[in-house]
């Protein structure tokens, strides 16, 4: 579903992605782990070209990423994205947030879009918040609304860029549960996260990044019990020590 080949990117002097080769098969859930600044968010954002790359190729569902323009907008409509900061449209209600894409991009009627939106909000457990504005919701509710907004486009693949990192601890679970449900339903997912529990429980593969490189690519069991590289051992030592 996603294929990255020899992808390189610099931010000025900083080499943020070094020769990235990564495939995510249809229906697969891949978790990307790594220390801050290892390039995992950039990798995630590169897949729908929120970050343009310097060289290499990225394919989604067999088609190479187009340059700016209508073709890119079309591709993005098939790739759901969930952000660390939710990024719900602040001037629209939760229902309107979920309806905007189907109406503007898919050309759905307002009533059809509303029905789908309510079903999706029901699914993530916040149908009763549909008429509120984002600022009136808790972080966990906002993130679940953001997931519903992405799902409303019926995407082929979902990208999660640290979806729980801006949440209070008691709200993390409600978002993770929504993601686990989605994974069980067979959605293709690439998840950048620090949630080791999710990586162990829901991922088919764990990709470990450090300094812009993919250092390990293994099943969760293998990665957590037998990491091969020193960098991964060091990382796991730090986060699992307590």
């Amino acid at each position: 579903m996603i294929r990255m080949t020899a992808v390189d990117k610099h931010f000025g002097d900083l080499h943020v992605l070094r020769d990235i080769n990564l495939e995510v098969a249809s229906g697969e859930v891949v978790v990307v782990l790594g220390p801050s600044g290892s390039g995992k968010s950039t990798l995630c954002r590169a897949i729908n070209r929120l970050e343009p790359i310097d060289s290499g190729t990225i394919e989604v569902d067999g088609a190479e990423l187009p340059a700016e323009g209508k073709a890119l907008a079309k591709l993005r409509s098939d790739v759901g994205m969930v952000f660390q900061q939710f990024n719900l449209f602040a001037h629209k209600t939760i229902a309107e947030n979920v309806m905007l894409g189907p109406i503007k991009v898919r050309g759905k009627s307002k009533s059809e879009a509303h029905d789908t939106a309510m079903q999706l909000l029901e699914r993530v457990g916040i149908a009763n918040q549909a008429d509120k504005y984002p600022a009136q919701l808790s972080g966990g509710q906002q993130q679940r609304a953001a997931i519903a907004r992405a799902l409303a486009m019926a995407p082929k693949v979902m990208l999660f860029d640290e979806p729980t990192s801006a949440l209070d601890p008691e709200m993390i679970n409600e978002v993770l549960e929504a993601m686990v449900t989605l994974a069980k339903e067979g959605m293709t997912m690439l998840v950048v996260t620090h949630e080791m529990g999710f990586a162990r429980g829901a991922a088919h593969r764990v990709v470990f990044m450090s300094d812009g490189e993919i250092v390990e690519d293994a099943t969760p069991d293998t990665f957590f019990s037998n990491p091969t590289s020193d960098r991964a051992k060091d990382f796991l030592g730090k986060i699992l020590a307590h």
Binding site: A73, R76, D78, Q85, N87, L100, K104, A150, M153
Partner: peptide
């Protein structure tokens, strides 16, 4: 915030 435009683009809206 830049995130608003990023979210808009990521659901497939044109510029």
């Amino acid at each position: 915030s830049a995130g608003q435009a990023e979210a808009a683009r990521s659901i497939g809206l044109t510029f």
